[in-house]
Simulated scan of single mutants.
Amino acid sequence: MRRLDQRGVAALEFCIVAMAILTLIYGILDLGRYMITMQSLRSLAGAGARAAMINDCYTNAVLTKTTPTCSGDVYLTDAQKRALVPFLYANGGSPTLTTVTGGSAVTVTTSMAGFSMVFPSIWPSSFNSPSASTNIPF
């Protein structure tokens, strides 16, 4: 019997396998970038909560047994934020930190407005607007 020509089969198999492996690798890198962004946002929210508790607004309210009226982002300077979470400032990013008083807690929320996934079609849309928050009960 005559043998069929097998030239190019290995290249075709490599293309099929390489496409799957590269998609997996890029997906892992993209998810890792999202996870480090979330961890940095949680760290910034914790630092903002600690700064809000030390600030006169929260401390005086607790001592006088009144509701604190903390709001805005007045507790951490931009340089302090940059020192805490340098990853978020890479490529010109700028996280926001807001403090809101309501109910029985002060909520410190951080978010990253300019973040987007490299492969947005394979991840949920909520991944494109990461945010983290911390509650300080009083």
Rank of each mutant, 00 (worst) to 15 (best):
N91P: 04
I122N: 07
A132I: 02
F87H: 10
Y58N: 03
A61M: 10
R42S: 04
V106M: 05
P86N: 03
K81Q: 07
L97N: 05
N135S: 13
G8C: 04
S111P: 07
S116Q: 15
A10I: 00
F127I: 09
M1T: 04
S125M: 04
K81G: 02
G102L: 01
S40Y: 09
V100Q: 12
A47Q: 12
D30T: 02
P68G: 00
P130E: 00
V118T: 11
I28E: 03
F119E: 03
F115G: 06
S40A: 10
V108T: 10
W123L: 04
D30N: 05
G8D: 05
G72C: 07
V108P: 05
A49Y: 10
T110V: 09
N91G: 07
F87E: 12
V62M: 08
L76Y: 04
K65Y: 14
G114H: 15
D5G: 10
G114F: 13
P68F: 06
S94E: 15
V85T: 04
T69C: 10
G93L: 07
P120S: 10
I54T: 11
S104I: 15
P120Q: 11
L63P: 00
M19C: 10
G102N: 00
R3I: 05
Y58T: 07
G32Q: 11
S133V: 04
G46V: 02
G27E: 05
W123S: 07
S94Q: 14
I136V: 12
A105T: 14
A132M: 09
V62P: 01
D5W: 12
N55E: 04
L31Y: 15
L97S: 05
M19V: 12
V106E: 06
N128E: 09
N128T: 02
I36M: 09
Y58M: 08
L29A: 12
M19E: 05
P68Y: 06
S116N: 12
F87R: 13
R82N: 05
I21C: 06
T69P: 02
T67M: 14
S129G: 14
C70M: 04
T109V: 06
R33P: 00
A47T: 02
